[in-house]
Design a protein around this nucleic acid. Structure first.
Lengths: 190, 190
DNA sequence: CGCGCGATTGAGTAATTTCAAATCTAGTGG
DNA sequence: CCACTAGATTTGAAATTACTCAATCGCGCG
């Protein structure tokens, strides 16, 4: 998993062995099993997670006990409750794995420390967040513009890996429709 | 407007007069009138915009000629087509003002240059984008979780300034409903 | 074999959209 | 000061879409 993280950084910045080792020492490796929470609503959040293997999901539970999935995180993706992380407020989200996962965890303090010590690490995270920002904008546009069927097709085209791992009812919750509606989409049969 | 920009930076990083002057020299001031485009679909995008006065809107036009508003930008906000800006692809968005505006414009090259030259400027933009990322996540959750009425109330509570400036049909387009539906929301009268 | 989970189907209900028309409002020129 | 206009908002009624709730189906695993 060290290799995966290094390649991830080196897509944006170049690192010597010792630089990367230094960075890597700020992470903690962790395996989690299905249904094990990394974050629960109400928690204080101190960590950000880099997915090495498996698939995580972050979601909220609304007042009707329905889940709404904010994000799936496949290998190579970062995930946390950034709202809670940034301003120290209690989390409004849950974060767990779809089916077991391996992750590298870094505390906010360590991330800020690395960014302060190494300009290029700060550059890396700026670029990274920038891309994440664009991805979220795309998702908002697809929620505003497309119907559920188109959103579903876009999603599968963009992340075919999700199709293999993730039950359709979770995809429905990500797309903003009920599982029944999603089920009816691809059997128009009229 | 120099003051506004400086205060904006100094919420996150401290700057000497000469440092700020240097930064400021990389911006270009511009007034735009109603219906004047900063970006049109198909354009190559080279600039990011900081709003000094007025209100901008970025939006897409779908295949049925309906507009979907991605973002309103009030004073103190940054806006562009970040997707087009980041990967040099033609813009899919339009960016113009709701009713005339004053802006400070910076090219991507100059922004990257400032970030490379001054670590703290890079830090500033990392933090800034981070908050933007959180705001977008909140918007996605409200699209998934809340009905149009609640979204409308949240929006007005969070940005009362929009209520004054922006026609309701644009707010409807931002919220993801038709103007008729929005109109009916606050006259339940049943 | 039977359990449990996910997926599907059906029927009735609720919410939103569409299209058309009416109303309101602010600004303009006479 | 008034009439006129363009843009924005509201209203009505029908059509569409998605939701809810309940029941059924399918399949892998112990």
């Amino acid at each position: 998993m060290k290799k995966l993280l290094r390649e991830h950084f080196e897509k944006i910045i170049a690192l010597t062995d010792s630089e990367f080792d230094y960075i890597y020492d700020h992470f903690v490796f962790k395996k989690i099993i299905k249904h094990q929470f990394l974050i629960q609503q109400g928690d204080r959040v101190h960590n950000e997670y880099f997915v090495v293997k498996g698939c995580l999901k972050s979601y909220m539970i609304d007042s009707d006990d329905k889940a709404h999935i904010l994000q799936f995180a496949l290998p190579d993706w970062w995930v946390s409750d950034y709202q809670a992380l940034n301003n120290g407020s209690p989390s409004t989200l849950y974060l767990d794995s779809v089916d077991g996962a391996e992750i590298l965890s870094i505390t906010m303090e360590n991330k800020d420390k690395l960014c302060a010590e190494m300009h290029k690490v700060e550059h890396f995270f700026r670029k990274k967040t920038n891309w994440g920002y664009v991805a979220l904008q795309q998702r908002i546009l697809s929620l505003l513009n497309s119907n559920a069927k188109d959103r579903y097709e876009q999603l599968l085209k963009q992340y075919p890996a999700l199709f293999k791992t993730v039950p359709k009812q979770l995809l429905a919750s990500y797309l903003g429709v009920t599982r029944e509606t999603l089920s009816r989409l691809y059997t128009p049969a009229k």
